[in-house]
C-alpha cells in the first residue's frame, strides 16, 4: 500500500511512539538484571528487556524505511521532551510487584494491539506485528502468572501488588490515547483503533486482576497525551545516553 505524505508522517510519529515505549520499558527492566529475586527471573527479565528492545529496533527500522532516520540516533540522541513514551513505562523500577504489575498492564495492551496490527493494510507493519506477537504471547503468560502469584501469594505480596496497582492503573489508560495524527492512520486501516480496544482491555485486565484478588482503583490521573512526562525521564535518559553522548568525536559504538 502506498502512503501519501500525510499518512507517512503520521506513521513515522506512531512508529516512534511505539518504539519509545519499548526502549524506556527495556531500560527499566535492565535495571533488574542481576538483581532479580531468583536466578530464573534474572534470565526471564534479561530476556524481556532484550525482546522489548528488539521490538523497538523493528519499529525504528520500519521508520527508517519511511524517512531514512537512524534508529541509534533516535534512541541515544533525542532529548527527554522529544520522547513520546507513555508515563507507565518511565516510572522508577520499584519493587518486584511494581515491575510485574506494570509488565502485565503493558503486555496485555501490547497483545491486544498486535493482534489487530497483524491485520494492518501496511504490509511491513503486519509482518513486524506478527514477529513481535510471537514473543509477546510469552511475555503475557509470564506476567499473567506473576500477577496471580503475587495477588494470591502471601499477605505481603498481595499488599505490594495492590499498592503498585493503585499507582499504575490510571497510567495504563494513557496507552489508549491516540496520537494527534493517528486518526487518519486508523481510517486508512494502517493501525488499530485504540479507542475501540480500550473497552476489551479494561474488561480483560479487570477480570484477571480480580481473579488474582486485586482491585483496580477508581480514578487517578490519566495523562492527556504523550508529551507529558514525569521527573524520572530525564535521569533515565541521562544514564542511558551517557556513553553514546560522551565523546562527540566518536563515529561508531
Amino acid at each position: 500500500m502506498p502512503l501519501d505524505p500525510y499518512l507517512k508522517e503520521a506513521l513515522v510519529a506512531k512508529l516512534t511512539a511505539l518504539a519509545d515505549d519499548e526502549v524506556v520499558l527495556a531500560q527499566r527492566l535492565s535495571e533488574w538484571v542481576a538483581h532479580a529475586p531468583i536466578l530464573e527471573e534474572d534470565i526471564a527479565i534479561a530476556n524481556l528487556a532484550q525482546d522489548e528492545l528488539g521490538h523497538a529496533k523493528l519499529y525504528l527500522e520500519l521508520r527508517q524505511e519511511l524517512d531514512g532516520s537512524d534508529p541509534d540516533r533516535l534512541v541515544f540522541f533525542r532529548d527527554p521532551l522529544e520522547y513520546q513514551n507513555a508515563i507507565l513505562v518511565e516510572l522508577p523500577k520499584g519493587d518486584w510487584a511494581f515491575t510485574m504489575v506494570r509488565q502485565y498492564l503493558f503486555d496485555a495492551y501490547e497483545n491486544l494491539w498486535l493482534k489487530e496490527a497483524e491485520k494492518s493494510a501496511y504490509e511491513p507493519l503486519r509482518e513486524v506485528a506478527s514477529r513481535i506477537l510471537k514473543e509477546e504471547r510469552f511475555h503475557l503468560k509470564h506476567s499473567v502468572l506473576w500477577v496471580e502469584r503475587l495477588g494470591q501469594g502471601t499477605e505481603e505480596s498481595h499488599r505490594r501488588a495492590q499498592e503498585a496497582l493503585e499507582l499504575l492503573f490510571p497510567y495504563a489508560k494513557q496507552l489508549f490515547i491516540p496520537l494527534p495524527e493517528e486518526e487518519a492512520l486508523v481510517e486508512a486501516g494502517v493501525v488499530p483503533d485504540l479507542k475501540a480496544l480500550e473497552g476489551a482491555y479494561l474488561e480483560e485486565v479487570t477480570r484477571h486482576l480480580e481473579r488474582s484478588g486485586l482491585k483496580p482503583p477508581q480514578g487517578g490521573y490519566v495523562p492527556k497525551d504523550r508529551k507529558e512526562h514525569t521527573e524520572y525521564l530525564w535521569s533515565l535518559l541521562a544514564e542511558m545516553q551517557s556513553v553514546a553522548r560522551w565523546d562527540p568525536e566518536a563515529k561508531a559504538w
Binding site: V33, A34, L53
Partner: peptide
C-alpha cells in the same frame, strides 16, 4: 550487568543483555 543501562547503541545493548542472560543460564 552494571553497564546494560548505559550501552551506547541498540546493537551493543542487545548483545550485552543476551550475554548476561547467558551467564544466568550458565549459572543455572
Amino acid at each position: 550487568g552494571a553497564w546494560i543501562t548505559r550501552a551506547p547503541s541498540l546493537r551493543r545493548k542487545l548483545i550485552l543483555l543476551a550475554k548476561v542472560q547467558d551467564e544466568a543460564g550458565h549459572g543455572q
